[in-house]
C-alpha cells in the first residue's frame, strides 16, 4: 500500500515535470531553439494566478483562465520582442538569450511580489480523496487529471485541426510550409503562446503542493532532464520522461539516504545518455554517413 501511495505522489510530481517538458519540446520542435526560461514561465504563471486570485480576489476557475490567457499573450510578446530578432543567429546565442530571460523573469518576479514565499489559495487544500486504503490529496488529483486532459486535447489538436497540422508542418520544414501557404512566423508566435500557457497550467497546478517563490522555476532544469529521458522532440516522450523522473524521485526519497533524491533527475539523464542517447521516443535520428 505504501508503494502505491508513493507511486501516486510520484505520478503527480511527474505530471508537473511532464507539463514543463512539453513546453520545452513544443518550442524546440517548432523553432529548433531550447527555451531555458520554461521553468520561469511556469513561475510567472503561478505568480499571475496568485495576483488574480489572492490579490484581485477572483475565484479559482476564472483566475485560472485569466492566468492562461495572460501567459499566452506574454509568450507572444517574448517571441516577437526577444526571439524573432534572433532569427538566423547561432543557436548558442539564442540559448544564452533564453537563460538571460530566465534571470530577468526571476528578478522581475522578486521585485514585484517579493522574495518571501507565498501560498496560492485554492479549492483543494486539506481535502483528501480516499480510495479504499489509499488517500490522495485533491491537489495531486487535480494535477493528474489536468495533465491527462491536456494530453488528450493536444493529441486531438495536433491530429485533427488545421492549425495543429500547420504547426507540425512548420516544425518539419519551414520552406515547404511557406509554399503550401502556412504563415511560419505567425505559427512560431502561436507556439510560444501555447508553450507559455502550458507553463501557466503547470504553475497553477503545482502552486498548491509547493510554495510560490521566484526560484521555483528551477524545477525547469529537472523537467529538461525529463524531456531528454523521454526523447527530446517527442510530446508523448516528454510526459513519459516526466513520469519516470517523478516516480523515481519519490522512491529515491524513501529508500535512499537523505539528499540523494535531489540528484535523481540528473542521474537518470546521465544513464539515459549512456544507454540510449536518443531517449525513449527517438525523434532525433543519428545522421547516417
Amino acid at each position: 500500500m505504501e508503494v502505491l501511495q508513493i507511486l501516486i505522489s510520484g505520478v503527480s510530481q511527474g505530471c508537473v515535470y511532464g507539463l514543463i517538458a512539453m513546453g520545452f519540446v513544443l518550442i524546440y520542435k517548432a523553432t529548433e531553439m531550447v527555451n531555458f526560461a520554461q521553468g520561469e514561465l511556469m513561475m510567472l504563471g503561478a505568480y499571475l494566478a496568485y495576483t488574480f486570485i489572492n490579490v484581485l480576489g477572483m475565484s479559482y476557475i476564472p483566475g485560472f483562465i485569466a492566468t492562461v490567457i495572460s501567459m499566452a499573450i506574454i509568450g507572444v510578446v517574448i517571441e516577437r520582442g526577444v526571439l524573432r530578432p534572433m532569427i538566423g543567429e547561432p543557436p548558442f546565442a539564442v540559448l544564452m538569450i533564453t537563460i538571460g530571460l530566465g534571470f530577468i523573469l526571476r528578478a522581475v518576479a522578486g521585485a514585484i511580489w517579493g522574495t518571501e514565499t507565498k501560498t496560492l489559495s485554492n479549492p483543494f487544500t486539506g481535502s483528501v480523496a480516499r480510495i479504499s486504503d489509499l488517500s490522495v490529496g485533491y491537489e495531486n488529483l487535480a494535477i493528474i487529471v489536468g495533465t491527462l486532459t491536456l494530453c488528450v486535447t493536444f493529441y486531438l489538436f495536433f491530429r485533427f485541426t488545421r492549425l495543429g497540422i500547420a504547426m507540425q508542418a512548420a516544425s518539419q520544414n519551414q520552406l515547404a510550409a511557406y509554399y503550401v501557404g502556412i504563415p511560419v512566423k505567425r505559427i512560431y508566435s502561436l507556439v510560444w503562446a501555447l508553450s507559455a500557457s502550458l507553463a501557466a497550467v503547470a504553475g497553477v497546478l503545482v502552486a498548491p503542493v509547493s510554495l510560490l517563490e521566484p526560484v521555483m522555476g528551477f524545477i525547469g532544469i529537472k523537467a529538461f532532464c525529463a524531456a531528454i529521458v523521454g526523447g527530446f522532440g517527442s510530446l508523448p516522450g516528454a510526459i513519459l520522461g516526466g513520469l519516470i523522473v517523478g516516480v523515481a524521485e519519490q522512491f529515491a526519497n524513501l529508500y535512499l539516504p537523505p539528499g540523494i533524491a535531489a540528484t535523481t533527475a540528473y542521474v537518470m539523464l546521465l544513464v539515459m545518455l549512456l544507454v540510449r542517447p536518443q531517449g525513449l521516443f527517438a525523434s532525433i535520428q543519428q545522421k547516417k554517413v
Partner: peptide, 30 residues
C-alpha cells in the same frame, strides 16, 4: 523540400492547406 517524417499522402494533403475552410471546433468535433 518535403515533410520527411510524413507519408506521401500526408505531404500531398497538406498541399490543400490554403483551400481548407473549417474552424478549430468543427475540426475537433469532426
Amino acid at each position: 523540400e518535403l515533410f520527411e517524417h510524413e507519408t506521401v499522402l500526408n505531404n500531398m494533403l497538406i498541399g490543400r492547406h490554403v483551400h481548407r475552410c473549417s474552424n478549430l471546433f468543427s475540426e475537433l468535433l469532426f
